[in-house]
Design a protein around this nucleic acid. Sequence first.
RNA 1: GGUGCCAUCGCCAAGUGGUAAGGCCGCAGCCUGCAAAGCUGCUAUUCCCCAGUUCAAAUCUGGGUGGCACCUCCA
Length: 466
Amino acid sequence: MFIFDSARKEKREFIPQNEGKVTLYVCGPTVYDDAHLGHAKSALVFDLLTRVLRAHGYEVTYARNITDIDDKIIKKAREQNKKISEITTFYTSSFHAEMAALGVQRPDIEPKATESLEAMYEMIQKLIDKGHAYTTPSGDVYFDTSSDSGYLSLSKRVQEENDKQNRVESSEEKRNSADFALWKSVKDGSVTFESPFGLGRPGWHLECSAMIEKHLASSHAEYAVDIHGGGADLLFPHHENEAAQTRCATNHALAAYWMHNGFVNIDGEKMSKSLGNSFFLKDALKIYDGEVLRFYLLGTHYRSNFNFNTQDLEASKKRLDKLYRVKKRLFGLTGEEVATAFQNELLKALGDDLNISAALALIDELINKINETLDTPGKHKEFKREALSNLAYIERVLGFGVQNPYEYFQSGVDEATKAKLAELIEKRSEAKKAKDFAASDAIRDQILAYGVQIMDTPQGTFWEKI
RNA sequence: GGUGCCAUCGCCAAGUGGUAAGGCCGCAGCCUGCAAAGCUGCUAUUCCCCAGUUCAAAUCUGGGUGGCACCUCCA
């Protein structure tokens, strides 16, 4: 496999530290609000990566954290007069439900900040002991960036230039403007934990480094994890800071490979609350099938910026529809799974830094070949067996085509309408049998009024929601 | 100001030295009572512009132009 390593800015052959095993850590959500399309993109990208790694035969341990200690959470709890835990529980479960709708598999480990405090204390203490962190008079603990010769090696920035544009007020207690909080002392009792460093709460960057040590790292390894991923915006300062903490507190570097996914824009504009154009996943899922969103969001290479718009989504859906139509043609058939050349080619395409476009082109070729073959007379027994295996492989590795094909085309239609449609189709069939085409066409128009199109096949008349 | 990314058919989008994948849309045909679906064929001598390297460049180099991201919590 090949992976583009955003630390080195080049595509590299992927070689895990332990043969056959991969550790993957991805920065997950801060659970203070509904997930938007950007969260979906990131989760989908690393879901795909995990599936592809597993298809390559790797035993993958995938961890994605839940940040449940954060100023934004506290603010929200205050505003809504709720407990912190009510907020975090609510948004954690909605996140899980929405990701499930997209076909995102749950990570193997999902550590929470609130459950990782001991690991964080341990890391802070190590950093203090090694002279990489200092305590201020007001009780905060900061990471001393000047003590880390490798600082900024990940993002390759220039500190003086960062400072020129630094829009954040720098605390006067910090030794260097880039120093970041490991521990924030809190006196108002809002959300405080009792630590060896006093009452307070941990800085945001710390949790990932601590969780990685706790759950994934082996102390003698050169790297704490094989792959560390997240959104492109996290490269700096979040990942830079994580890398610094781990490098200074332990005897290994944080990650052998870094992967960053591109952003999701809406109609050419950055999603942001101030622009009022955040597209929440829960709203998108009211309009579109989760798998359609999965297919659309994964349809563009993970490192590209993604511009979400409904026209492109509709075009993308038509491509997925074709996969489902071919599944309809093979529906009900079963057989032993066999390995095929197609599967090898698909895996090769995806193994090249998740080249989804190449993979989709192969799938389109496959669909075309299946339709072409099924259009010719014959039983095609062996061909069908291979076709079924290939479709099953696509389901497993890409998560495309996982639904019952008939239900896929009829999702969102209520039972009463379905019954009515069945009735109309029956009437139309009778009219057709009587060669009363004026009547059958009139009924078809009635059916069309439901937003449904029909198709006559040798097996009968079927309908699809348009 | 710094760091970095991008520019390929009407639209989406691969391709990073060997002579332009794939999808949507469109056009023609087959099939169909007619449709829909499916199938077949057609649809970029050309990859933002200029110059250079090379037997060979969308792909490399230099210079432009135009987008964009990060440097603040952020996927």
